[in-house]
């Protein structure tokens, strides 16, 4: 059991978090509302996952004002990028392993 999940990062064990990470991997910076539309989740749900990823040092938060409107956007930290890449590698390894049906 242990060898199967080796390399998988529990910070990414959820669909919303995978979505956030995927969007941040291929875009320079993504705003809160764009992430919300993309993932189709509620404000609260998204905010709590973003908070978790921020606390783990995986994403960085950028708050600024555009005119009078507050605007929050997110980017990956260098460490976050590394962690997500190795998570993807672990997923791919799992797929190639002969007993891939073990969960």
């Amino acid at each position: 059991m242990k060898t199967i999940i080796e390399g998988l990062n529990k910070n990414f064990d959820n669909r919303v978090r995978l979505g956030i990470m995927s969007a941040l991997m291929v875009n320079e910076g993504v705003e809160f509302n764009t992430l919300k539309d993309l993932l189709g989740v509620t404000d609260g749900n998204l905010a709590s996952h973003l908070k978790g990823l921020e606390k783990a040092g995986i994403i960085a938060v950028h708050k600024q004002f555009i005119g009078k409107k507050p605007n929050t956007s997110y980017t990956l930290t260098g460490d976050g990028k590394k962690q997500f890449s190795s998570h993807i590698n672990a997923l791919e390894k799992l797929l190639k392993s002969p007993d891939k049906n073990v969960h």
């Binding site: 969007a23 291929v26 875009n27």
Partner: peptide, 23 residues
């Protein structure tokens, strides 16, 4: 620790999200 996620579904989801968010 157990993980509920299915790796092939996860990878598909990641690929979709990367495409949908950038294109």
């Amino acid at each position: 620790m157990t993980t509920k996620s299915n790796p092939s579904e996860d990878l598909k989801h990641i690929r979709q999200m990367m495409e949908a968010s950038s294109k």
